[in-house]
Design a protein around this nucleic acid. Structure first.
Lengths: 232, 232
DNA sequence: GACGTACCGTACCGTACGGTTCCGTTGCGA
DNA sequence: TCGCAACGGAACCGTACGGTACGGTACGTC
């Protein structure tokens, strides 16, 4: 499995042609689901031969794995500047990551790949689910964890276990939106930024150091409240 | 599709034999995934004929749908007694529902059925996902919502939009445990009751009416703190 | 200009699965 | 006892898909 993976060579593309094929496969998957992702279909959509597919990816599972790593390589988030300090800066950074997370998770390609991995989970040893977790969750967790620990070191927030704090923030941000989307519930329009701000504010009310949080009450219904300070 | 569903007749079982077949199918699905859930396999495991399968369920999709409603009919939560009032009672009821939710969501059958529905979901109306949402999420949401609104009416908690409060509580309780399990991450041992208590306490700190919450700080790392009053 | 490489397009094969049909048996009511 | 409905078991069919093999073509290299 995982015949010729991009991640091992590091860097960027396996080859331009290969990536074009993967892109076609992703399109096919997004608009047709796993049923549409046949080897013949991919070959037809990408104008390549099945023989090339098997030469490049070794296997259908190898193709699926390559699709996941390929998509992950496109979503690499830029390392945000860690310039300013203070609570407003921390809040702004958290909101930024949370907004990005919400946008990624509700993207069509992400949904399709997660559906694929979940549908095949536990069936094979070649676990696509682990691949998705490694390339999807782990980067987010490390980014958020380092940020949270920096905030704790700066005395802005307090918590014992980093993972607990991260998990709470994740829950506040994503709620059950992800599973609902995966189950096929039509995505209702919403503002990722507003949701992220709301969730981060809730998180800060739970984990903020004693007197850093300003007004006690916060209306949770309406979208973006006016108490958001601008990014410094 | 959905040829002969149990839910329409209300009550209980379609027939004893039918339910036994569905039970066999669930076992097959849990331990083999969708790949193992072939019509021939179900017939063999249940000692029935494929002809009977098609007579009872009309279709493979009908069988899948019947499995979902059948499983849902087994999980019907008992209507909890709404006797006592006051914050400790509210907290206890919330913790009870949250604990139950965590146990159900991490159950093998629930995981397998959710994987099945998600794997077959697409942007078009693939109904299994909707079925899972209707029989899984909606009951929880209505139970929690009525409870939350009762708490608000009693002046114990405050919120504008019920759905927002519900969603926040859901996120605090479940976090991303569900998706991780669906992706095949091995379930690590944890105490649903302790997690539920922690989440409900966090929720009450966010939505509790002004002076009803006692000590301000709360350690989030350790499991079940000693500040939990017994159920009245 | 011969050779090798990389690739496309397509035909082909084996298999597995959904769905159908047929037959034998059991059991129940008239 | 007869008839009939329900059911189990098994054979069968059509199709779709993963995987392979083969022929043909463009291109670079000696």
């Amino acid at each position: 499995m995982l015949a010729t993976e991009t991640a091992e060579t590091g860097h960027e593309a396996g080859s331009a042609r290969r990536n074009a094929v993967l892109e076609s496969a992703l399109v096919l998957l997004v608009e047709g689901g796993e049923r549409a992702l046949t080897t013949a279909g991919v070959a037809r959509a990408a104008n390549c031969s099945k023989e090339s597919l098997y030469k490049w990816f070794g296997d259908r599972d190898g193709l699926l794995a390559a699709m996941i790593t390929f998509q992950a390589s496109k979503v690499r988030a830029e390392p945000q500047p860690v310039g300013a300090t203070g609570l407003p800066a921390l809040r702004a950074q958290l909101v930024g990551i949370a907004t990005n997370l919400l946008k990624v998770l509700s993207g069509d390609v992400s949904i399709a790949l997660n559906r694929l991995a979940i549908g095949k989970a536990r069936r094979d040893a070649s676990d696509l689910g682990q691949l998705v977790l490694d390339h999807g969750r782990r980067p987010i967790e490390t980014r958020l964890s380092t940020l949270l620990e920096a905030g704790r070191d700066a005395g802005l927030i307090t918590f014992d276990a980093t993972h607990e704090a991260y998990a709470t923030l994740y829950g506040l941000v994503v709620r059950d939106m992800h599973v609902r989307l995966l189950l096929g519930e039509p995505k209702q329009p919403f503002s990722p930024a507003a949701r992220a701000e709301q969730a981060v504010d809730q998180f800060l009310r739970l984990f903020g150091a004693e007197k850093t949080i300003g007004p006690a009450r916060e209306r949770t219904g309406s979208g973006s409240p006016n108490n958001a300070p601008d990014i410094p």
